[in-house]
Lab assay of single mutants.
Amino acid sequence: NQESVVAAVLIPINTALTVGMMTTRVVSPTGIPAEDIPRLISMQVNQVVPMGTTLMPDMVKGYAP
């Protein structure tokens, strides 16, 4: 099972992602793959992401799977 990126904290809208904001977990449905965390650093979320929420591609500005 592939791990997906999950919010480790509440991430406010338009916040640039940092390593500490993200964790990984096997979830269903799957979100952004864990191995993409290095690509996500400094990208901004386009909505509020509650802690424990799986990051989906459409939540991150400029992210393309």
Rank of each mutant, 00 (worst) to 15 (best):
Gly62Val: 04
Glu35His: 06
Gly20Asp: 05
Met21His: 11
Val48His: 06
Ile11Met: 09
Asp58Trp: 05
Pro38Cys: 06
Asp36Phe: 08
Ser42Arg: 05
Lys61Asp: 15
Met43Cys: 03
Pro33Tyr: 14
Met22Asn: 01
Val19Pro: 12
Val19Ala: 13
Gln47Tyr: 12
Ala34Asn: 11
Ser28Val: 07
Asp36Glu: 12
Val6Met: 04
Leu17Val: 03
Pro65Lys: 09
Met59Thr: 11
Met51Lys: 08
Pro33Gln: 06
Gly20Cys: 04
Pro50His: 10
Arg25Leu: 06
Gly62His: 11
Leu55Val: 14
Met51Phe: 11
Ala34Leu: 05
Val19Glu: 14
Asn46Ser: 11
Pro38Ile: 10
Leu17Met: 11
Met51Gln: 15
Ala64Gln: 07
Val5Gln: 00
Pro29Glu: 06
Val19Phe: 14
Pro33Cys: 06
Ser42Asp: 08
Glu3Arg: 02
Met59Asp: 03
Val5Glu: 00
Lys61Val: 09
Pro50Met: 11
Pro38Ser: 08
Gln47Arg: 12
Ala8Cys: 03
Gly52Tyr: 08
Met21Trp: 03
Ser4Thr: 07
Pro65Trp: 02
Leu55Tyr: 00
Gln2Phe: 10
Ala8Gly: 09
Ile32Asp: 00
Met21Ser: 06
Pro12Met: 05
Asn1Pro: 10
Thr53Cys: 03
Arg25Pro: 01
Asn14Ile: 02
Thr54Trp: 02
Pro65Met: 03
Thr23Glu: 12
Ile32Ser: 02
Ile37His: 04
Gln2Asp: 15
Asp58Met: 13
Ala16Leu: 10
Gln44Trp: 11
Gly31Ala: 07
Thr18Ser: 12
Met59His: 11
Gly52Phe: 10
Thr23Val: 10
Met51Ile: 14
Ile41Asn: 06
Glu35Phe: 05
Thr54Gln: 06
Val45Asp: 00
Leu40Trp: 02
Gly31Ser: 04
Ile32Leu: 05
Met21Ala: 06
Gln44Asn: 13
Met22His: 01
Met56Gly: 14
Ala8Thr: 13
Ile32Gln: 01
Glu3Lys: 03
Val9Trp: 05
Ser4Leu: 02
Pro38Thr: 09
Tyr63Ser: 04
Met59Val: 11
Pro33Leu: 04
Val48Ser: 12
Gln2Gly: 15
Pro65Cys: 05
Arg39Trp: 06
Val49Ser: 01
Val27Glu: 07
Val5Ser: 02
Val49Ile: 10
Pro65Tyr: 02
Ala34His: 15
Pro50Glu: 12
Gln47Leu: 08
Lys61Ile: 09
Ile11Lys: 00
Pro12Ser: 09
Ile41Ser: 05
Met59Phe: 09
Met59Gln: 07
Met22Ile: 05
Gly20Val: 08
Val27Gln: 07
Met43His: 14
Val9Lys: 14
Leu55Glu: 01
Leu40Gln: 00
Ala16Cys: 04
Val45Leu: 11
Thr54Gly: 02
Ile41Ala: 08
Pro65Thr: 06
Val45Phe: 01
Lys61Gln: 11
Val48Cys: 04
Ser42Phe: 05
Met21Lys: 06
Gly62Ser: 07
Ser4Pro: 00
Val27Phe: 02
Thr24Ile: 05
Asn14His: 14
Tyr63Asp: 04
Ile13Leu: 10
Val48Thr: 13
Ala16Gln: 15
Val26Leu: 14
Gly20Ser: 15
Thr24Asp: 03
Thr54Tyr: 04
Leu40His: 00
Arg39Gln: 12
Ser4Trp: 04
Asp58Pro: 10
Ile32Pro: 01
Leu40Thr: 02
Pro33Glu: 03
Pro29Leu: 15
Ile13Lys: 08
Asn1Lys: 02
Thr24Lys: 13
Ala64Val: 13
Pro29Ala: 07
Glu3Gln: 04
Met43Asp: 14
Gly20Met: 10
Gln47Pro: 00
Met21Gln: 09
Ala7Thr: 11
Gly31Gln: 03
Ser42Lys: 13
Ser28Lys: 03
Val60Ala: 02
Met21Tyr: 09
Val27Met: 13
Pro33Ile: 09
Ile13Phe: 10
Ala8Asn: 07
Glu35Asn: 06
Asn1Glu: 15
Ala16Pro: 12
Leu10Trp: 07
Met56Ala: 06
Ala34Asp: 15
Val27Ser: 15
Gln2Val: 12
Asn46Pro: 02
Ile37Cys: 04
Asn14Phe: 10
Glu35Thr: 09
Thr30Cys: 04
Tyr63Leu: 13
Val9Arg: 12
Val19Met: 07
Asn14Cys: 06
Thr54His: 02
Met22Ser: 01
Val27Asp: 15
Thr54Glu: 02
Ala64Ile: 08
Thr24His: 11
Gly31Pro: 01
Asn1Met: 03
Ile13Ala: 09
Pro57Val: 07
Gln2Cys: 03
Pro29Gln: 05
Asp58Asn: 14
Ile11Cys: 02
Ser4Lys: 02
Ile11Thr: 00
Val9Pro: 00
Gln2Tyr: 05
Ser28His: 06
Arg39Tyr: 13
Thr54Ser: 05
Val6Asn: 02
Leu55Arg: 00
Val48Phe: 15
Val49Asn: 01
Thr18Glu: 04
Gln47Cys: 03
Leu17Ile: 07
Lys61Met: 13
Arg39Asp: 03
Glu3Pro: 04
Asn14Tyr: 11
Ala64Pro: 08
Ile37Glu: 04
Met22Gln: 01
Glu3Trp: 03
Pro65Glu: 15
Ser28Asp: 15
Val45Ile: 11
Leu17Trp: 01
Ile32Asn: 01
Val49Cys: 04
Ala34Thr: 09
Asn14Gln: 14
Arg39Ile: 12
Lys61Tyr: 11
Gln44Tyr: 10
Ser42His: 15
Gly20Phe: 09
Ile32Trp: 03
